[in-house]
Design a protein around this nucleic acid. Sequence first.
DNA 1: AACGTTACCGCAAACGTTTGCGTAGTTATT
DNA 2: AATAACTACGCAAACGTTTGCGGTAACGTT
Lengths: 340, 340
Amino acid sequence: MKKKITTLKEIAKQLNLSISTVSRALNDHPDISESTKEKVKRLANDLSYVPNIFAKGFRSHKSNIIGVIVPSITHYFTATILKGILDEAAIKGYRVIISESDNDISKQTEMLKTMMQFGVDGILMSLTKRTRNIENIIKTMDTVPLILFDKVSNKIPCTQIVINEEEAAFDAVEHLINIGKKRIAIIKESEYSYNSEKRYTGYLRALNEHNIAIDEKIILSVEDITLKQGRRMTNILLSLKNRPDAVFAITDSAAIGVVQALKKFKIKIPEDIAVVGFSNSIHSTIIEPMLTTIDQPGERIGSTAIKYLIEEIDNPNEFTGIKTVEIKSNLIIRDSTFSS
Amino acid sequence: MKKKITTLKEIAKQLNLSISTVSRALNDHPDISESTKEKVKRLANDLSYVPNIFAKGFRSHKSNIIGVIVPSITHYFTATILKGILDEAAIKGYRVIISESDNDISKQTEMLKTMMQFGVDGILMSLTKRTRNIENIIKTMDTVPLILFDKVSNKIPCTQIVINEEEAAFDAVEHLINIGKKRIAIIKESEYSYNSEKRYTGYLRALNEHNIAIDEKIILSVEDITLKQGRRMTNILLSLKNRPDAVFAITDSAAIGVVQALKKFKIKIPEDIAVVGFSNSIHSTIIEPMLTTIDQPGERIGSTAIKYLIEEIDNPNEFTGIKTVEIKSNLIIRDSTFSS
DNA sequence: AACGTTACCGCAAACGTTTGCGTAGTTATT
DNA sequence: AATAACTACGCAAACGTTTGCGGTAACGTT
């Protein structure tokens, strides 16, 4: 039992007005008298008129829809970013179409294409691992504005919203140094990743500035930075003659794996070996000891990203320049580095 | 530098054909000769033609967009449901607009409205707590198909996709009985909630069937079923003269709170008091001891929900009947009820 | 030779909205 | 009293696509 949808024509007929007058009345056009406006608006309300979005977008070439592509929606940090995007979008009157690339490059390409077909006004994207074929991304960019966040690439000439990765990692490692640690291991990603690379340079810089020698033996790289890999790497570290006295894992889940492995071997945290993660996931407060980590303000990243995007959408011709916007994160010190 | 978008007209002009012929050629209409089809398709491809979604939807009154409203996107279980929805939608050629109601009823109403304005073909919704004004939900239902999932209400006459809540709770409690527990506490929600209520009746049924007396003193209700409340309730339980030997928390986070509180008082889990949660959140494997809990197949819920919705969208007139579809969950036994 | 059939294609309307332009009526200006 | 300016509204085109209907040419059938 579909309800009959009311159109401008219907309202016009009932009020003996022209369609254009009704349209203008609803849009508060100055040419229309107050009395007419009121009549029109009242009837529109009574008939629960909703403007046909297609007819509107059809004319204006504007959908007020923004496309978002993320690797994994179930990842907590990603979800907080999405929340930031959704909230800001609601305020600015945009709808958001979300797609998951599942860390699959071909899916990502496919999605970019269908986003275009659906006439989105702009695209926010966080890249899959090992994103190779940049061409189609760049190609879409001359049809519709695109902004990257979190997992970015400086090979793509567009505005990018990121955490101050290097500085954050620097802070984390310096914190370890400050509590007296001298032999600090790192677990990072082996494949190239913007985030991993930045954190790694932050690690190196901290060691350098504090005149601590760099030891390749305690610089470990893994393909997938997971909990399981964290455990595996810890076993490797513990088998060394010269064990580290701290571990900086580039990710909370890896850090949790480290903690679990250390506990298994009854190694005291943080006295014997301190652990720092990255992300401030919820898990970091559930594991014992609670994890020292970097809090990334996901919502701010999301809202910032969409703000810049809408800016570009509203001013399509003026070249606003490619910015890399860094959102400040901050170190949260908990029991895994601090014994009370 | 906006690119010129190609239309049917452009293709028609270049090929000296009519617009209708071009349209039919692209849609593989039998009236068009193979040779013409090929020419048209080639040029369309060269000009990277994409059909204008607005013009299309404008005519067909179909957007191929589905609206989804959830209380909180950052909630892990919700995220898995969304993943199921997104995957299935991609397969069926639908886009998904996601909105967060933030457990705010007025927001929820607002979103329902804007979803309508954006011409979605159907709506999937998980209700906020204490959803009161059902009217507008029912009102939208005679314009566009709507299906509820997870947080549902049997006051709304529509298809609903849920977990077999009662049975799952029954299984969980029976498991506790099977391992020898005789005094099983429950922590549930005080406000009416479909899920809480069902789980509670499952709890009651299990006790009844095993001839265990029901003791109101160990049936605790909280407003917000959070980790903190889990801890608080545990303190209450421990202050009883006749302590329980097991706790069934209606939610993983509450269960984790219970575990934390028990550990603080050096109470052995599961020997002294066993704990069962509900959800199989990631946290349940990180807490020590790992939590026995109910695994809810989020992705299946999501994909099932959207399947039913598309079914309704494709057959708008025939009344398919209101179904309540139960997705089977299953008990996962871990250390919090089982000492190896 | 007249007719029916088939293959292939074009015309034009329709979807609902916005908007430039035109205009009738009224009021203000010289 | 003639002109200008303003108010309030209508006409009609345009956006890109789909589709019912109609038409033409070619071919086959009696």
